[in-house]
Design a protein around this nucleic acid. Structure first.
Lengths: 251, 251
DNA sequence: CCGATCTCTATTGTCAACAGTTTACATCTT
DNA sequence: AAGATGTAAACTGTTGACAATAGAGATCGG
């Protein structure tokens, strides 16, 4: 029997499809944080009835991506800068642990893959100059690989399945601007060096330092610009415009 | 105006009530891991229609407490011993971080509260003898307080709102039996001592050691008893009996 | 002109019926 | 008798209709 026809196929319910679409819309920023979702408008827009749509929303509710107020409606999750800082602390703990585990379990192939990735990073002049930031997703890819290499399914799920999503809602780019790019690049190299040495303590420390430094950048901004989000008006089709202008946080 | 009448009250939708009921049923072990839920039977049993019930289930799905297979049904989450060990590693990372934060932020009142809690623990002869285990929820209370004292909303949510739930599904009691009670008690005292010293590094290290020791107990069992859960038959009213006998893990 | 109350409309919450799929069982074939 | 095939029952997926609620604007009284 052909390889292509081996695995069992399963129907994808409308809820699954709708969930994915909503996820994408939230991640991409099409639905801004704080904006309200109209069930009727969204359902017709997606071409499904309200039932599956509501179920999809409930699933996102369980993942804290949206919040429902009874008889009022659902709003895309809003993260305060305090929330963002808190999330980055969680990230520090989890990625530190992931890096520790990776130091023990990572294969030599995966390690050389990281090396190559860093080499490509280094060739970007923007990084060398210290002015620009990593190409979209490059820094993410670096972290992603290490987390995956931890071999801890729960850790992988929590980071790549939940936490990264939440950070993305906030348009959070993890290492950029302000001359941090060059520094972040050095930190990445330190992480890889620690991984190569197979020293769990060093690996965890290096990764935590890296994430912590990124967090510090947020901390310095917290005093200046805590956003005040006015309660959005009702009405409005599809998804409303953001209550305040889209916040882009880089660091 | 009275204090009791200040906060705004919100209607609790059927979905909210049903979600809570399901949660309790799963936590209490009334629905064993791996057992299937019949929508029709459950709905009539709860006195609601399938709509709200399905939405409640979707929410639990987002929290990974249940798993749905299209056109087949939903099953209570099943955690392998590998999953349990992985979860405890995550817990080590998160509670370690929580303890670090608590060392800096905990008030003196909270600290003396911990002292008192430990004193009560010490008076239990079962602990002193090293044979019994902590009274139900006592060890949990200890960890709970420290996590709360971290002041990190995300950390609190992930631990007390998600991770502890998952562990409870597994009937996981965190420090018991096998003479570990006395040792766990000593470890608790070390944690409090570190908190009192206001030394973040020490506090994190003490908590991580404590959680890690608990994890080691699980690790020793992993080789012997990975459960084989046979695919449960269809049919059956309400909730089916567990596919294999209820697993009680203590350590 | 201001405030309280009422009414109406848009929106969410809930339900019951219908459609599609899966699984078990009976039947037929070899 | 063993395997394949058809059939029916039970279940999940989806829908559209109906009930209940909240918020905005109109109306009335001071």
């Amino acid at each position: 029997m052909s390889q292509l026809l081996s695995g069992r196929v399963r129907a994808q319910s409308l809820v699954d499809v709708v969930t994915q679409r909503l996820e994408e819309a939230i991640m991409s920023g099409e639905f801004a944080p704080g904006s309200r979702l109209s069930e009727h408008a969204l359902a017709t827009s997606l071409g499904v009835s309200r039932g599956p749509l509501r179920e999809a929303i409930r699933r996102l509710e369980g993942r804290k991506l949206v919040e429902r107020t009874p008889n009022i409606g659902v709003h895309i999750a809003v993260l305060s800068l305090k929330d963002l800082a808190d999330l980055l602390i969680v990230r520090e703990a989890l990625e530190g642990m992931a890096c520790r585990l990776a130091a023990e379990r990572m294969t030599d192939e995966e390690l050389s893959g990281l090396d190559q990735l860093l080499e490509e990073h280094g060739e970007q002049e923007s990084v060398r100059a210290g002015t620009g930031y990593y190409q979209e997703g490059r820094d993410f890819d670096f972290h992603f690989r290490i987390v995956k290499a931890s071999g801890n399914a729960q850790l992988i799920q929590m980071l790549t399945g939940d936490l990264y999503d939440l950070l993305r809602v906030y348009r959070y780019k993890s290492s950029t601007l302000d001359g941090r790019a060059a520094k972040a690049f050095q930190e990445h190299k330190a992480v890889v060096a620690a991984l190569k040495s197979r020293d769990p303590d060093k690996a965890e420390a290096a990764m935590r330092l890296h994430v912590r430094n990124a967090r510090m950048h947020v901390a310095t901004r917290m005093v200046t610009e805590e956003p005040v989000i006015p309660a959005p008006k009702r009405q409005g089709a599809r998804a409303e415009t953001p209550p305040s202008k889209q916040r882009i946080v880089r660091l």
